[in-house]
Structures are given as C-alpha cells and as structure tokens.
Design a protein around this nucleic acid. Structure first.
Lengths: 333, 333
DNA sequence: TTGTATGCGTTATCAG
DNA sequence: CTGATAACGCATACAA
C-alpha cells in the first residue's frame, strides 16, 4: 500500500557523483556550493523527483516551518478572511499554516496547543478561546512563540494584538448622537469574548459619561440568527430604540433584516445601526452597514512579522485602531 | 533565542527508570507494555512535559499525519465551510490540515503539491485549480493520496468528488418552467471552473431539449460584485429575462440585490432566481434564495474516509446529488 | 514484557 | 569548496 518510494539525498548524490553534503548545501539557501556541482545536483534531483524532507530538516533544526492556527467557527466571514490573510503572510516567509478547529471550550484550545508542540510548530496563533496558563507556559518554555488575537488578556512572552474596541465604541456613540438618536441599545451575543465585551462596556461607559441610558441585550452565539432574536427583543420594547450598536456585523445583519422585513422599519430614518468587523456582506446593497473595519491584512502582517523578527522585548502588546466605514445605516454620514 | 528545551523520550526513560523503547511503546497505540511501566512512564512524561515529536515519528513511519488543503479564495462562504468540515473530519481521525493558499494559476497549485511532498503529507485535497499531470503522477509515485473536489477532471489513482451539476441544472430549468418563466438566462463568472461550466452547459442543454432559448452571460471572478455586473447586463436587455440561474450563490446575491434595489424588480413576481451552494447568506431574509445545497459535511466525510480506508480500487469517482432548497426567490415552490 | 541496536533523511561540524 | 561523520528523536527487529 504505502510504497516508500521517496527519493533521498543520498540517491541524488550518487547519481550526481557528489557527496550527500553537497546535495544538502545545494538546497540550503546561502550555503557555499560551486556553480558546477549545484548544476549537477539540480539536474539529478530533477530527474529523480527529489524533494527535501522537511520532517528530517525540522528534526535537525528544531524548527519545522509550521505555524499553528487555532480557531473556532472558522467558516464565519471575519474569521475566514483573517485566516486567509495570515496563511498568505506565512507563505510569503516560507512557513505554512496548520489549521486546528476548536469548539468554544478552553480545553480544546489546550489540546490544540499540545498538538502544536508535538509538531514542533514554530509558533501558534490563537484566534479563539484562551488556553490555560500552564499550557502557555509550556509553549514559552518550549521556545514556541505565541500570538493572541483579540483575546485581550495578558500572557507572559506572547504577542497580543488587539483593537481599540472601547475607543471605537465611543465613536459609535458620537455617530449616533450626531444622527440625533437618543434611545440607544447594544446588541451582543452571550459568549463573553473579551473583545466583544470591551465593545459593550466601552459603549455603555461612553453613554454614561454623556448621561444617556443604554439598553443592553445579549443572546446566543455570535451569529446572524442571534441578531434576529436580539432585534425581536429590542424592537418590541415600549420605548423602541432608535439606534443599535451591534457587537459584530453578523449580529448587525440579523438585526437589520429583522428590523426591515419583520418590523417594517426604515433604515436609517427610523433606526440606525452600526456593526463591527466590516465583513464583505456589510457592503452588499441589502445592508449598506456602517461599521468598524478590522484591518485583517495589517493584523496578519504584524503577527507574522513578530514571528520571524527577533522580538523587541520578547512579549509585546499591539493596539490597532479600527476605522469607521460610513455607509447608509446611520443618518448624516 | 531558540532555547532547545524540548524534552525527549530518553529523558523520560531515565526519570522513569526504564528503557527509551518502553517510552516509545507507551505512546504507540497497540503496543505491549505492562500496566506498571506504562504508569511510571506517563508519570514521568507528565512531570517533564514530554510530547512525542511528530516530526521524528513521521520520519520513521514515512507518514506525517499532515493532510494538505490546497485552495484559492478561501474566505469565500462555500470554501470556508468546506474547509471547516474537512479539517474537522481530519481531526477526528488524528490528522491535521495544512492550509495552502493559491492564486488561480495552476503553477501555484503545483508548488503547493511540491510543498506537500516535502512535508511528506499523507494526502492532498485540492479545492481549486488543477495541477499538472506530471506533478500528480509524482504524488501517486510518492504514495501520496490525492482528492479532487469539484474539479471534474480525471487523474489516475485520485479520488474525484463531484456533484451532479448537469442534472441539478436540469431541475433548475424545470423549476423555472413550473414558475411559468419563459425568458431564461444563465449568469456565470468567466473563470471557467469545471463545475461552474457543467452547470451552465447542463442548463443550456436542458433548455435546448425543451426548445427554449437561454441567454448566457459571463463576467469576472465568482463573486458578489460580478453578480451585480451580470444583472446590469441581463436586466437592460430588450427582452428582459424572467428567470436567472446563477452559477453560485455569491453571484446570485449580487443579482438579487441589483434586481431589487437598482431595477426595482419584485422577486419572485417579476424575476425568479436560483443559485448554487446554499451558503449561509442564502437563508438570510434579505435573500431567501432558492438554491442547490452542497453537502459539505458529506463531501468532507467521503474525502477523509477514503484517505484513511484502504481504497477500493485505488482511484475512484464519487458523484453526489445536490438537493434543491426551496425558498422565496422562485414562484410556486 | 523488556532492553539493545540500528536506521530514518537531514543538517552542522570539522578536517582537508 | 568539498566530503566524512556525528547528532536529531523516534520506532522497530531482534534477542533476552
């Protein structure tokens, strides 16, 4: 069944009439080989269909070229675009992404991290959940780098990339105020992800400061269908909100659809909505959603740069600003 | 920088007071170890933070546990849900997905496949593009299994998973006929992916058989924005189509939005639309798109089952039926 | 059941 | 610039 048939450096060396070291050097960037031997090696390698065994190379160098991406609900628009951006960046520095699905449990994140260690991954990037401190310590001790995206929690030696969620929430409030909205609401899922909570808290605080009340509603996973439920709850209140800030775009789409189709509300005339992420659907003409853009390419670039570049201090935190994209779901853009 | 600090089987053996073979056996499912030694080994391993080195193990067994996913535009709804399903299935059989981004060029697919060989991936699953025959031959010769999804092209020894695209297209025609539509159109991208072309050809053929004319329009990548352009072209024709079958849901969403918002057409009263894939957005209340469902979980299951199970004949082809999901974009569901 | 010895394909070291 | 040799961490055939 499993025919071995992998051609090794020795075979190439024999055919080319050189030592196996010469073969190794030919495929090691920046090694010194004469033009002549390189040519002969390449020729033999081509003929035999030789490919460097990255497993063996990784074993020697203690560096596999693998980077572990740990993520749940990866078929969600924002997540998948972040994955695309990161894997693309990784490839540009000759690394490759290992993709690991988790459910929401922190234990599954721990398992993923263990797997990363088993494969001697050069690094792990966590997009969902939060591993136990004992595991992250193990990662650091193993010389494995760690990047936490939107986790908003400290981990010794790891790179933390976060957005200015609270500050963005303040700007959302200002936008609503300028639109003349006074009855405000915040629509959130009930999963309690740090970045989602930061948006909620930032919005409520900002409203507090301005002496405005905010109705906060939380429900279900962070998905479209939850947005539907949230809208039903919010829009049936006696004092119907004039503006809803949603924890992310998926919720906002559900809210918008429900407001328009079920409650026959005109947006933005009767209801203003702001989301977060700027997923592709937000720009579709059924939504025209005003939202904060997550700069996924920038996030990916920062993450990968930190992985390859010797770290400045070792662990670092990065805060990125989310730009407000004005579309039609808020008056007076 | 790169502290070595990976604990090896030898260290565990020393601490447990056994030979390193005992350690190896403890972590090899189905090896014979006494309960006593197993316990002591596990204890030592736990204490030291030992993890089997999958690189070394893969080197020995010539089998890495890695499966390469080759895909372009992976942040697209259908693609990302397929990736989720596959990676999930892989994890359930203790394999892990290596994710490789390609652009549309076949050369980038070749490169991805070479990388898979370098990592001694157990298999490669191709979701986009088509590699050169010389490369696929190399894969087979290297004992690397190959799965082609929706590629609709033969490759010796590979598993090909396809849908009944042509047959589905026939059913789309019937649905339109039952809705009383006579002026028909097909909206396609211009990338010429086999499965997309099969849907187009199947639809045109079925219409031919029924003596009906079909306007075919092709434009751009297979994305929402292309749907917008396609709708503009189709809906400004003298004889405006009453029904449009779109090569996939993303195009259909663009068509629907444009028909409604720009041309003020009522769906399904003045225009019927059918898509393909059943992405999540199709069920959103702004679309209510009637569409053919790609059974991603089934596809993933078949692919992974074939990878783990000794192949029936070696290479195989699988055709899966796409169910029509009736929603509001066609009259008389 | 256990330990010993050997080999997997590389790269790094060092002598030439 | 080149070639021999020693690791790397593990699995396994073989002997005990």
């Amino acid at each position: 069944m499993n025919q071995k048939i992998f051609v090794s450096a020795k075979e190439v060396a024999d055919r080319a009439g050189v030592s196996r070291s010469a073969v190794s050097r030919t495929f090691t960037p920046g090694a010194s080989v004469s033009e002549e031997t390189r040519r002969r090696v390449m020729e033999a390698a081509e003929a035999l269909g030789y490919h460097v065994n990255h497993l063996a190379r990784g074993l020697m160098r203690n560096e596999s070229g693998l980077v572990c991406l740990i993520v749940s609900e990866m078929d969600t628009p924002y997540r998948s675009s972040l994955i695309r951006a990161i894997s693309h960046q990784l490839q540009s520095v000759s690394k490759v992404a290992m993709l690991i699905n988790t459910d929401r449990s922190d234990k599954s994140v721990d398992d993923a991290l263990r797997l990363a260690i088993s494969y001697r991954a050069d690094a792990s990037i966590i997009l969902s959940g939060m591993p136990d401190r004992s595991i992250t310590d193990l990662c650091m001790k193993s010389g494995q780098r760690l990047v936490l995206i939107n986790r908003d929690e400290e981990r010794e030696g790891a790179l933390m990339i976060n957005l200015h969620d609270r500050e963005a929430a303040r700007r959302a409030l200002i936008a609503f105020q300028r639109a003349g909205c006074s009855r405000l609401a915040f629509a959130n899922s009930d999963v309690g992800t740090p970045s989602l909570m930061a948006r909620e808290e930032g919005f409520v605080e900002a409203a507090d400061d301005a002496g405005i009340d905010v109705v906060v509603e939380r429900f279900g996973p962070t998905r479209y269908q939850s947005g539907v439920v949230l809208a039903q709850r919010l829009l049936t209140r006696e004092a119907r909100p004039e503006a809803i800030f949603c924890a992310n775009d998926l919720l906002a789409c559900g809210v918008l659809d429900t407001a328009r189709h079920q409650f026959k509300l005109a947006v933005p005339e009767e209801l203003c909505v702001i989301g977060f992420d700027d997923i592709e659907q937000s720009s579709w003409s059924s939504y025209e959603l005003t939202t904060f853009a997550q700069p996924v390419d920038l996030i990916a670039k920062e993450a990968v740069a930190w992985l390859t570049h010797p770290a400045p201090a070792d662990g670092t935190a990065s805060r990125i600003r989310a730009d407000l994209i004005w579309r039609g779901s808020v008056r007076g853009g």
